[in-house]
Design a protein around this nucleic acid. Structure first.
Lengths: 189, 189
DNA sequence: ATAAGCTACGGAGAGAGTCCCCGGTCTGCT
DNA sequence: AGCAGACCGGGGACTCTCTCCGTAGCTTAT
């Protein structure tokens, strides 16, 4: 982003501490973690938090943007290592695991794939959608996935699998199991 | 339940108005609708609400218990009308529609299929689980469903489908589509 | 029909949180 | 050194939950 001036040193320090603390807090308490508490834990006043991040959503997104980008990069890495069908499967698995390990990310990814899609044009949304699209299209080209499925539908269904696994207690076996069931459905046709 | 005395007339009236208003409020605002607001809309003091329903969960469950029981009855009705595989599919469809039309019910059904299963032995949970078990077992007996799937897993996955459809905007086509994808997965094996 | 007794009511208020702003103060940059 | 810019943290305005206790009015016995 454009920045007229570089941030003042203390401002930058606080910004980064807020991000770190926020990531922990969201992971621990979910998307509705107390913002005042985050500010306190970061050792700054609440005004400082609200100056840097005007809304809860802004903070949520900033806190996880690097993790999301790592997921995007991981998609390409998997694409070179594995055949398309397996690459997609493995990436989705890692997506679900990430979603469940870090409770705040579930909300973030959920809002990234909602509705008409008009509103949620955030950076995270485009990153995830892009990665999913690449893997899905590749798998379809190889016939490892039915052709009439849109990438965003896959993301939504995977979000659903995450919800199901969450209900089941979020154990790794459940995730693998539910994902493979979904996979069967996505392959047929 | 045992009742030493019949309820006083005004008590019964208030009880029923609370239930009606609560069902509307939960449907409209989701599980976290304001309880004070429900009391106000029902024309009673908040004390009255808390006397009848000590916890939010108690009210949520009481508000939807009849709807849940209708779902249970519907399961048996479908079982006589359709072959097992289709009966299950149709029932799950109606379950998802109910879940999405009435936002509070999603929370209720979600909590009914959580975790180890030890805690949530509520009436709603047993009704839904029972209905699902009958349909699932019947479908498995006919080979319309893979044998290694537990009824509760089906419920969890369907809850996930509801989440996915919710993200997509909860249109009827999406529900049918996502459910049929799940069905493919559940049939294979 | 009336009165006594007790059930259930109402709604204020305490307590816990959340969000956000503001005015004085301090700090880092040039 | 001087100043723009950032900080701090108290506090206002809300919202929601849940309890308490005086009392309205329903029931039942006479």
């Amino acid at each position: 982003m454009t920045q007229g001036r570089p941030m003042r040193a203390d401002a930058r320090r606080n910004y980064e501490r807020l991000l770190k603390v926020a990531a922990q807090a969201f992971a621990e308490h979910g998307e509705s973690a107390s913002l005042d508490d985050i500010a306190k834990r970061a050792g700054v006043g609440s005004g400082t938090l609200y100056r840097h991040f005007p809304t809860r959503q802004a903070l949520l997104e900033a806190a996880y943007v690097d993790r999301i980008e790592a997921l995007g990069a991981r998609a390409d890495e998997l694409a070179t290592e594995l055949p398309p069908g397996e690459a997609l499967g493995e990436w989705l698995y890692e997506l679900v695991v990430g979603t469940l390990q870090v409770r705040g990310m579930k909300a973030l990814l959920g809002s990234a794939v909602t509705g008409g899609g008009a509103l949620a044009l955030t950076a995270c949304a485009t990153t995830v959608k892009g990665a999913a699209a690449r893997l899905v299209r590749a798998a379809q080209a190889r016939g490892a996935l039915r052709g009439d499925v849109e990438p965003i539908e896959v993301l939504r269904l995977v979000h659903g699998v995450a919800s199901a696994a969450e209900l089941a207690g979020a154990g790794e076996p459940e995730i693998r199991r539910y994902l493979s069931l979904l996979n069967e459905g996505l392959r047929a046709g």
